[in-house]
């Protein structure tokens, strides 16, 4: 929001800037758009058991998904889990990000490292850890039983709650880091100005901090929402075989059923749902705060 116009990229006149864009663009084109195009083509093919994939141009795979309550259910569950995880990450992450952003201690970098620390452990390893904690005789239930707080173990493992906890734990650092960098860019004086004008902390938050942090909130929620929609290891390991989400479903069609056309169709439905929901949510938010 500075008063001066943004400076042109260094080397803009020599054409160097154009050249700088090429490697990443090529990588994205070859590594992402190519496979997606192929996948889309596959999703229009026919699947005949025993014959693997038969070339065709049909929408029966999409029809199959949207006419079967089981698959609709998986989609709804995935969206629900992703929305809850994103909201919880935002609610838990904002205060933490704010404190980190405003911290002036020399331990600040250490604190940021601590936030990132969970990402040092891979998804599968972490989920395995949660499994030992959440089991009926796991650390969590054993402690509560031992303390006499409960007499029968609480069912956590292989429930939606286990999956929610697992995904939130993975996604929280992404939310915190995104918010922190944006909040750091909001001058402290702007908050102080609001206070001096009579705004209490709640009013300062809703009228000044939140709207100014909105770009970070949008970026953070996009990131965590996409990650949650596409979660794989956590739902498989913590949700168990009966708790299906879209990610594992895609994998199952490709690897276990060998049904590439249907797998491709599910992939596309997942991708489209993610994009549509993300865009829709942000249109709503932006309309409210502009």
């Amino acid at each position: 929001m500075s008063a001066t116009a943004p400076e042109a990229v260094a080397g803009a006149r020599t054409g160097l800037a154009g050249a700088l864009v090429v490697p990443a663009t090529l990588f994205v084109a070859i590594g992402l758009i190519g496979p997606i195009a192929i996948l889309f083509r596959y999703s229009l093919n026919k699947f005949i058991p025993g014959q693997f994939m038969v070339d065709g141009l049909v929408i029966e795979n999409y029809v199959k998904f949207f006419t079967d309550a089981y698959y609709i259910n998986v989609l709804v569950r995935t969206v629900r889990v992703a929305v809850i995880c994103t909201l919880v990450c935002l609610i838990l992450g904002f205060p933490l990000a704010y404190v980190l952003a405003r911290m002036q201690s020399r331990f600040k970098n250490l604190m940021i490292m601590l936030v990132v620390l969970p990402l040092f452990v891979g998804n599968a390893v972490r989920a395995a850890g949660w499994m030992t904690a959440f089991g009926n005789r796991g650390a969590f239930n054993a402690s509560l039983t031992g303390l006499g707080i409960i007499d029968r173990p609480i069912e956590i493992m292989f429930t939606e709650n286990a999956v929610l906890i697992g995904i939130i734990a993975v996604n929280l650092p992404f939310m915190v880091l995104t918010l922190q960098s944006v909040i750091e860019g909001i001058p402290r004086h702007v908050e102080e100005a609001a206070f001096s004008l009579g705004a209490n902390p709640a009013a300062m938050f809703t009228r000044v901090l939140w709207p100014l942090a909105l770009p970070g909130i949008l970026a953070g929620t996009i990131l965590t929402f996409i990650l949650a929609m596409n979660a794989y290891a956590t739902p498989v390991l913590l949700g168990g075989p009966k708790f299906q989400m879209m990610g594992p479903l895609v994998y199952g069609q490709f690897a276990q059923q060998n049904n590439w056309p249907f797998g491709g169709a599910i992939s596309f439905i997942l991708m489209t749902a993610t994009i549509v929901l993300t865009v829709a949510a942000h249109l709503v938010v932006q309309r409210r705060y502009r």
Partner: peptide
């Protein structure tokens, strides 16, 4: 309060 950096709400 008036700040050196103006601190207007952008």
């Amino acid at each position: 309060l008036v700040f050196q950096s103006y601190a207007l709400f952008p």
